[in-house]
Amino acid sequence: MSRGNGRPSIPVTIDGQEAMAYEGETILDVATRIGVRIPRLCYLEGLSVWGGCRLCLVEVEDDPRYRLSCATPVVAEMAVTTTNWELHNHRRRIVEMLFAEGNHICAVCVSNGDCELQDLAAETDVDHIHYDLQHPDASVDASHPKYVLDRERCVLCTRCVRVCNEIEGAHVWDVGGRGSDSMIVAELSKPWGESPSCTWCGKCVLVCPTGALAFKGRAVGEMRHDPAVIDFLKTARDEGKWYERQEAR
């Protein structure tokens, strides 16, 4: 989010709602500010834009293609429609395929009930999966004394990769493999517990949208993430401001 100084000067319309935007704000920034919710998964306030989940695509008037709202700066007189029948179906299919890609068994997941993928399913009307479940044979890395990584629940949003690199500055995580074999790896594919650069800060766990990264010892449904902490830290770092924030639920 860009907290522009001065007055907002760019007139835009989002879902029929007129608003004034600051220079440099993205469509998603403005929509969030005026209370219009756009579905997204990989985007997180305070981190760089990744553009991988494609859920926040929106319709821009007179533009033949859908635009990524997290990465598209607003321009004057832009008219945005955040959802239409086709976009809704696109999002629904993508969410369904994310479910099909992993082993997302909510009933036995630490994050059941505190899961952005679950929330997205509800938001996009996913009540069952039309596609073949892939049942991948992904691995669990429980080598870290404090945290656990279950790749079967990973949606490859790379929030952990970015938070570790951009906020903590450790760059423990990265993506290994390609295509459907992609997976989050620590230290060029070492067990997490053997990582010499991991600082045990736990930010990756806080930002994970699903149950892929969790505190050890949490039973089913007990895990609570806290992705908003990152924007709090980023603001503190960049602007020297420590704003009031509520602890996670």
């Binding site: 696109h90 299919r93 395929m97 099909a100 890609e101 490859l156 459907s180």
Partner: peptide, 18 residues
């Protein structure tokens, strides 16, 4: 395409598989 998808974006990574 499935083999060559880089895996970054969800629709290509999962869509080519499906």
């Amino acid at each position: 395409c499935r083999e060559e998808s880089c895996g970054k974006c969800a629709p290509c990574r999962t869509g080519t598989v499906q």
